[in-house]
Structures are given as structure tokens and as C-alpha cells.
Write a protein that binds this DNA or RNA. Structure first.
Lengths: 229, 229
DNA sequence: ACACGAATACTCTGCTTCGAGTAATCGAGT
DNA sequence: ACTCGATTACTCGAAGCAGAGTATTCGTGT
């Protein structure tokens, strides 16, 4: 598979617009904005113009006319090419059919969470849960309003998807916060203890050199597998 | 709030490593890899070294010693500074407590999905559902193996989170595929019709100029709100 | 004894991305 | 008539990021 010539999903949105009719870049940006696509696809001017250049360079779109109105900056109108149509269909199909690993910031945070004491993490997650509830309420209100206007589900589909993900995240975060607060989760005691020792000036190296001595039996889990007798 | 001096989450992972003890960049990379952090935080050499430079420039880490072994490239060992520790804690707290909008590729795909005919989209989503099931099975098997080794939940937490998100995605995708296949969803008929007309050479502009004529009553939903009598 | 692949430890270059900046015109009010 | 903010339409430069490339040494087998 030849790697996609232009990588930014914004390029796909550009092709999608030009499928309807030729436009100039600024018009594309306002069209995407009007239709609420900027909720789903990151749009900023810098990227837009460089993405358009790149599509042009690769023959996926072609310049139709450049006109200038008075002394205003000139506008170049682009049309999609056949290659561009093929690319659009192929790319969109791939996007829909093939999951790709995406790195979320919560996943990053979770993987480094031992860097803060468990009680603090629990509180931070409570805060997050609150934010998530607000966002979920906002989206649900929006959907209710849209449906009341007679707009059907299909036009909200990206947003419905987002709502599902947010709900899953909320459930996970609330559960984890609860388990951390209760202190009943295996390993949390040792984790807490590490932070107490460190705040007393014991270095991380020292603790990990002999975790069982510093942390008790729970520390055994911190030993590398080959030393875990 | 002064925007974060270094943005890449990899920088946070670097600070997290140096919190334990001073290391040189390559050692940081292998440490992260060993601990499976590269599953949660994108790691590549180019970024690593530029991120380390940037942390250094901003006084969050400091060079301790540069040694060269024979004729090998010299290694610079870095230690975290107090500013770096503060940044680590603050940043990690923010990551855990504050959801940020993230643009996923499926969301992009969904928002442009009218660009393909509904039956094709349904099939593509079936394919995605298959991939998702495989990935979910892989993760579940991994978790079972890890638990059998006596490793507790906390060490798998990022992965448990991922599993929850994947399950939510699968549920959504499978539901949507079903609804599209059945053709019972409001709007799908019109969507299908648009693609039939277009394959007969009718332009998108023409269809959208008078959707009710081309698509029947279902087309009314495509009119801009001000013209929707 | 030495050959060859894996591991060590970066460096370099070119593309992308971001966000601020620019500069003209339009429209609504005073 | 004029001013002031919004809209139109890009441009620019600095920074970030990806990934291939490079050079050395270690280890393992034959």
C-alpha cells in the first residue's frame, strides 16, 4: 500500500467539499464551518492552505481560475480531479473500515499516574468526571433541540458517537476514582507508601532497589519478574 | 494560564523517567519501551531528542555529564530540575483532571460518510466491527495472562481504559451498520438516491438546488432551515 | 578468529502544523 | 459622511515531528 500522499484529514474534507462544486480555499473553510465539520475535523488556516497546496501538487485538485477583486488578495478556485475523487473514496473507505491506534491524553495520564499519590489522582479523576458530565449534558441538550427541529439522527451521527465515547470514559473514570478513594484496590497501599517515603526524602532508586523492605509484601509486585522469587 | 512550554506528551514521560534517576535520552527510550509506555505515548527518536532539547532549553531538565565511550557518539545524562518536577506534577494533574477535545479518525469518517453510498458504508462498518472484535480479544487475552501472573489491575489500567473505549466503539459501529443495512433509518433512502442520481451524471449542485424534486419528501431535510417552509 | 546481526546512541533533513499577522472591504450605526 | 468592528482572503515564520540514515560496539555462533 502506497502511503497516503496527503495525511491530514482536513485534506479529505477539502476533497469532500470540491466534490460538490469548485471553490476557493476560504470558501471551503466557511462551508466546513457552517456544516459543523470543524467539530470533527481540526481546521485552521495555516493547515488549510498548505493542505490545498499539497493536494494541488499531487494532482488531486486543479486550479480553475484566479480572480482578484479590486485590491483584495486574489482567490484561486480549485476543482477536484478524477484522481482526487478516487482518493476521496478510497481514503474515506479506509477511515471507516480500519481502526487505527490513537493516543489519547487520558491514556497518557493513566500510564504515568503513579507519579502522583493515589488520593490526589482520585480527586483529579472526580474533577474530570464532573467536566465529562457537563459535556455530556451539553451534547444531549443539543441533540434534543436538533431532534425537536425535525433533524434526523443521521445528521448528528458524529456527535452521537462522541457522546457514546464520553459516556464510556465517564463510567471508567468514575469507577476508578471510587476504587482509589476506597483504598481497597490491590497495590494502592504500596503506591501511597512510595509517595510518603519520597516526601520524607527517600529516593526512588532506593525504594525500588528493595521494595519488599520499604513497602512490605505488596512491594513484591514491583520486583522485575526474574527476581520475584 | 501560560500555555505549556513543551507540548508533546512524550516530554511528560521523559520527566517521569528522570524523576527516578538521571538518564541519557537513549536510556529513557529503552526504559519507556520496557515498561510498555510506548503503548500509551507515541515514542520515536526524532521526537525524543527534540523534546529533550526543548525541556533543556526551558530549564526543566539539566545536563549532568557528557561522556564518550571509545569512538561512540557521546551520551549526555540529564537530571530533572525543581522546575521540571513542578511541571511534571502540574501537567499530569491537568491531563487527568481536564478532558480535551480529541479528533479521532472515525469521527472524521462519520462526518464525511454521506460521500459514499449507505450500503457501502454499512459494509465498511461491518469490516471495522470485525477488526475491533479481534483487537478486543487480543487485549482480553493479554489481561487474562497478566492476571494469571499475579499482576494486579493497576498495572494494566491504561489498557483496561482502552478496552472500554474499544467496546463502546464496537457497540456503536455494530448498531449503526445494522441500521444502515436495514434501510429503516430516516434519511437513508434519500442518501441512497443521491448516489444513484450522481452515478447517472446528475451533479450535486443540481440535486441540492431542488432536493424535494429529486429525492421526494425526504429531501426536504436537506433544505437550509430558512427555506424549509 | 572473525563474521554478521542486534543493540547502542544519536543526527539530519524535509515536511507539517500552528497561530499570529496583514490588508482590504462591507455594513451598521451615529 | 465617517468610524468601527466584522468579514473576506490569505501569508509568513517559527517550531514540531517523523523517519530514515549513520557510526560504533557487543555478542553469538562456527
Amino acid at each position: 500500500m502506497t502511503r497516503r500522499r496527503v495525511g491530514n484529514p482536513l485534506a479529505l474534507a477539502v476533497l469532500g467539499c470540491l466534490l460538490e462544486r469548485p471553490m476557493h480555499p476560504y470558501e471551503i473553510s466557511t462551508t466546513l464551518r457552517e456544516r459543523g465539520k470543524e467539530q470533527s475535523i481540526k481546521l485552521n488556516y495555516g493547515s488549510l492552505y498548505s493542505v490545498v497546496d499539497s493536494l494541488h501538487k499531487h494532482g488531486l485538485i486543479q486550479a480553475q481560475e484566479t480572480s482578484r477583486d479590486g485590491r483584495r488578495p486574489e482567490r484561486t478556485v480549485y476543482a477536484i480531479t478524477e484522481a482526487g475523487q478516487a482518493e476521496f473514496e478510497d481514503w474515506l473507505a479506509e477511515l471507516l473500515s480500519t481502526p487505527t491506534k490513537e493516543f489519547t491524553s487520558l491514556e497518557a495520564g493513566l500510564s504515568l499516574m503513579p507519579g502522583l499519590p493515589p488520593t490526589q489522582v482520585a480527586t483529579l479523576l472526580d474533577t474530570r468526571a464532573g467536566h465529562l458530565r457537563e459535556e455530556i449534558d451539553r451534547l444531549e441538550a443539543m441533540h434534543a433541540a436538533a431532534r425537536a427541529q425535525g433533524l434526523h439522527e443521521l445528521f448528528l451521527i458524529e456527535s452521537v458517537y462522541r457522546l457514546r465515547l464520553l459516556s464510556a470514559e465517564l463510567e471508567f473514570v468514575a469507577d476508578l476514582a471510587r476504587d482509589l478513594h476506597s483504598g481497597s484496590m490491590p497495590g494502592v497501599q504500596a503506591w501511597q507508601r512510595v509517595h510518603e517515603l519520597r516526601s520524607q526524602g527517600v529516593s526512588a532508586e532506593e525504594i525500588f532497589a528493595d521494595p519488599v523492605r520499604h513497602l512490605g509484601e505488596e512491594g513484591r509486585a514491583l520486583l522485575p519478574p526474574d527476581r520475584a522469587n
